[in-house]
Design a protein around this nucleic acid. Structure first.
Lengths: 195, 195
DNA sequence: GCGTTACGGTAACATTCGTTACGACCATAA
DNA sequence: TTATGGTCGTAACGAATGTTACCGTAACGC
């Protein structure tokens, strides 16, 4: 097997393996051996790239956030209006296809793993607060004349709604198909006066 | 102790111990020994009440659902109007105090544990579909003249919003205080025309 | 050419897990 | 009292886990 170019690329590949195991086998089976098997290597490589299992999980968690942030920034930059940007950014947070469904399951797994891990919960809070600020900025841009508390309440409602429906759809894809999620989002945006 | 009467009570106590461990130590530390320690007994009692660890988790999961359902039904019965019933039922699904925050953490833990467990995910889907139907019934009662697809979209938005904000608040209570959650819910109900 | 070194696989380590076997205890009935 | 059935704690087992030590190998220096 041709080895990756550098150590950073291997760390990224191992983090992707962490996501795969988390999405397909769950948190309880997220072992070093399972990650190595998913990455197509042995535990030796894993333990040479990361000092221990927690460091591997922390790296995978941060990479997950960085990747989503890049995707969100690209969507925001490509939007033609503030309201289109808001909708596009919110839409990618739902679980509307196989890929975003997997991301939602991984997100849930990391959140459950963070319950007893101070560093993981700290990363979650930093990333989530940044995500919330982005939503508030997008709502403020889409409704420039709103008072700040209304912006905050509506932005919170929107991010809570999308994260919630992503969890619901991840756990029961048949009951929450993509079009129902989209209709839910559009109905909410219209009700808030952001359609 | 009389055998048949106390077995059920012991099973319930052990399930509460499962919730405690799940809320305070997370899914990775949810071992039979930790549950026994939280319940103030040894692993012997646990393994005499349940054939194995999975049965213990399944029982705790079902008891969690039954308890919340009873609480929700009491709130619904005590409400003075359909809109008050809707708001009260939605409100209890958020994480606005220590108790509901713990419940949300436990809910997240079971959801993460259900990823690779067919029986757990089946229970989640049954319970969640019932919960969704209840929300749709409450929305329909609060807005009798709405078409069914609007009822569905709004009910989905509301349950997704409350479950989402419960997860957000459970992971970061300082950033999502109770009054912000309440304002979020009231703003959403008002925007939907259900205030 | 040869030695050096970093890389990665193999195998073993101690620990912890779920589970099982066994025995002490205790109430009740003969 | 003694026998008995059920309850539950104790201790052990095999399997799996995170981690460490060791060893082969291939590339690059001289």
């Amino acid at each position: 097997m041709s080895p990756p170019a550098n150590r950073a690329a291997q760390g990224e590949a191992l983090s992707r393996a962490v996501w795969d195991v988390l999405a397909q086998q769950g948190l309880e089976k997220l072992t070093v051996r399972a990650v190595a098997a998913a990455a197509g290597c042995t535990t030796g490589l894993v333990m040479h790239r990361f000092p221990n299992r927690r460091a591997l999980l922390l790296h995978a968690r941060q990479l997950l956030h960085d990747t989503t942030r890049q995707r969100v920034e690209a969507l925001e930059a490509a939007a033609t209006s503030p309201r289109a940007a808001l909708r596009a950014v919110l839409r990618q947070g739902m679980a509307t296809d196989q890929e975003t469904t997997n991301w939602s399951i991984v997100w849930l797994g990391f959140l459950a793993a963070a319950v007893a891990d101070a560093e993981l919960i700290g990363m979650h809070r930093r990333n989530n607060r940044a995500w919330r600020q982005r939503a508030e900025r997008l709502v403020a841009a889409a409704a420039p004349d709103w008072p700040v508390d209304q912006v905050g309440a509506v932005a919170l409602g929107l991010i809570a709604m999308t994260e919630g429906v992503a969890a619901l759809a991840a756990a029961d894809p048949a009951a929450y198909p993509a079009d129902q999620q989209e209709r839910m989002l559009d109905a909410a945006l219209a009700a808030y006066g952001l359609g």
